[in-house]
Simulated assay, not measured.
Amino acid sequence: MGETITQIPTEVLLLGVGIIFLIFLILLITLWVKLNKLRKSYKMMLNGDRDADIEQILIRMQEKGNTQEDQMAKIEHTLQQMQERMRGMKSNIQILRYNAFAESGSDLSFSIAILDDSQSGVILSGIHNREQTYVYAKPVEQGLSPYALSPEEKEAITRCVLKS
């Protein structure tokens, strides 16, 4: 059971340590070059601001985000107000021309319905005969008027509602 231990010559040992040292030196230089590239990229990310702190940049970005959220809420509120105003605008208009007196004339009489989205507004009617034209205005609330509506006025309102 005799074991023999062989000794490595000193020159070989020093050569092995030198090679390992050389490998570590090459690895160190490679990592140093990569670190410098990373540092340059980091500075470029910060737009060259040497005193910039990532934490401060993130805080500023968060503040800008909050400001934009507030502005967005104001814009949405304004948009809702505008939509409400537009619903109340008398933007639905329909004109119906007709001959009020079948025995003479042509389609010179008219009824104009001017309504909003809730079918409220006014209806204007002009009844034309040989000597003159009579113009009438009647208020309309939800498609109905407190005054009697002619069939032509009702048709103008119906057409206006169907158009919108």
Rank of each mutant, 00 (worst) to 15 (best):
Y42P: 02
Q62H: 11
K154D: 11
E103D: 13
K37A: 03
V140L: 01
L108S: 09
I95F: 03
E84T: 02
S118G: 01
S125A: 13
I127K: 08
I29V: 14
I26N: 08
L115S: 04
L58K: 15
H77Q: 15
G48A: 05
K163D: 13
G105S: 07
K64C: 07
E131A: 15
G65F: 01
A100Y: 05
S125T: 15
K34G: 00
R85V: 01
K43D: 04
L38A: 13
M1A: 14
A102V: 09
G126D: 04
G126I: 00
I157C: 05
S109T: 03
M86T: 06
G65I: 06
P9W: 02
K43L: 15
E131K: 12
E131L: 13
F101I: 11
I8D: 04
E141K: 14
Q7C: 01
L149E: 08
R85M: 01
V12F: 12
G143V: 12
E63A: 15
R159D: 05
Q119N: 13
S125G: 03
V161W: 12
I19Q: 11
G65M: 08
K43V: 04
Y42R: 03
S109L: 09
S150C: 02
V135K: 15
L124M: 11
G65T: 03
A113W: 03
S106H: 00
L144F: 06
E155L: 15
I157F: 11
F21W: 06
P146T: 04
Y134L: 11
L25P: 01
G48I: 04
N92H: 08
L79Y: 12
C160T: 08
L28T: 08
Q81K: 12
L124N: 01
K40N: 12
K138Y: 07
K163F: 07
V33G: 00
T133L: 02
L28A: 14
E131P: 02
S145Y: 09
T158A: 09
G105A: 06
G126S: 10
S41D: 13
R50T: 06
M44K: 15
S41A: 12
K37D: 12
S125Y: 05
S41G: 08
E152T: 06
V33K: 15
V135C: 06
Q119D: 09
S111V: 03
Q80M: 11
Y134D: 15
N99S: 01
D51M: 10
L108W: 04
I93G: 02
K138F: 09
E3A: 08
T6R: 10
G2A: 13
M86W: 08
M72V: 01
V17T: 10
E153L: 07
Y147Q: 07
N129F: 05
G88Y: 02
T78P: 00
A156Q: 09
L35Y: 10
D117G: 00
L27F: 07
L149I: 04
G121N: 01
A137R: 15
L15K: 13
R159Q: 14
M44F: 05
T4Q: 10
S111K: 03
H77F: 13
Q56K: 15
Q119C: 04
F21E: 06
N129W: 10
I8E: 09
I127L: 06
D51V: 06
K34A: 07
D117T: 05
N99G: 03
F110M: 09
K154H: 06
Y42L: 10
F101C: 01
E141D: 05
I95C: 00
I23S: 05
I57N: 12
Q80E: 13
I112A: 08
